[in-house]
């Protein structure tokens, strides 16, 4: 294992984050705060509680997840797409490193950045609502697992994308709807039974449900199933990455 290389990629990517601090950190924090103002305070004031949890607090895990998913995917996909786009990927391919090290470097940096933002948003949310965390260790575990899994997905998207439009396609057209329909702002038990059944095909439901459980001790689906769903997703992403690595798909003729 070429740890020096992993560290170099990680540092280079984190450098990029700090160079674009306003765009990388300030903008997600601002947009999430707007959600709090609109849904939590303005509309939420008219909603009493969901599952006995004040609505303002109820949406916190969903909002953190929303940002975490978007950030992990965007950071990782852009991180690997950009060298492909400008051509500097030649250096990654010619370096004495395996694809595993490239993945650890890029995915690690993307997940770190997404986690940083998630933590900032969580901290910001305490300005708006009273928040207690029932299972802090599990909360961190859910955060880390989700960030890593979706950074892996982002990495795959970045390798797959042939242009900037494709790079945006999956986060915008697939992930955002899944998050909104995944119970970020409501409990799926509030839906008619038919839509509840449909919701169970949405992988994000399990993430948000599990994450919400770590805060309030209650969930739409059993927490064990949430964990299993993340593990399954992580495994699928790792398998895809392994296949890309084996075949040189889209990066190595």
């Amino acid at each position: 294992m070429n740890w020096q290389a992993i560290l170099s990629i990680y540092r280079f990517e984190m450098n990029r984050t700090f160079r674009t601090l306003a765009q990388s950190v300030v903008s997600p924090v601002l947009s999430t705060s707007l959600y709090f103002v609109v849904f939590g305070t303005a509309i939420g004031a008219r909603i009493d509680t969901v599952d006995n949890i004040p609505y303002g607090a109820f949406i916190v895990p969903g909002l953190v997840m929303l940002t975490l998913l978007q950030q992990s995917i965007t950071n990782a996909s852009f991180g690997i797409y950009f060298p492909k786009f400008i051509g500097t990927i030649y250096e990654l391919l010619s370096a004495p490193i395996s694809f595993i090290e490239v993945v650890i470097g890029y995915v690690g940096a993307a997940a770190t950045k997404a986690l940083m933002i998630a933590v900032i948003i969580l901290a910001t949310s305490t300005l708006f609502v009273d928040l207690t965390i029932a299972h802090p260790v599990w909360m961190v575990a859910f955060l880390v697992l989700t960030a890593v899994s979706f950074a892996l997905l982002g990495f795959i998207i970045g390798i797959w994308a042939g242009n900037f439009e494709q790079l945006q396609l999956i986060p915008l057209l697939v992930v955002t709807p899944l998050v909104f329909l995944g119970g970020a702002f409501y409990s799926i038990t509030m839906l008619p039974p038919a839509w509840q059944a449909v919701s169970l095909f949405n992988p994000v439901v399990y993430l948000i449900s599990g994450f919400r459980w770590s805060f309030f001790g209650m969930a739409d689906v059993p927490v064990g199933i949430s964990l299993a769903a993340i593990a399954l997703f992580l495994t699928a992403c790792l398998a895809a990455i392994w296949w890309i690595f084996r075949t040189g798909w889209r990066i190595k003729p």
């Binding site: 070429n2 020096q4 290389a5 560290l7 170099s8 990629i9 540092r11 280079f12 450098n15 250096e91 990654l92 370096a95 004495p96 490193i97």
Partner: peptide, 12 residues
């Protein structure tokens, strides 16, 4: 930084 990055990438 780009030059340092290359050195690190090659494990040095």
């Amino acid at each position: 930084n780009t030059v340092r990055f290359s050195r690190g990438l090659f494990g040095k």
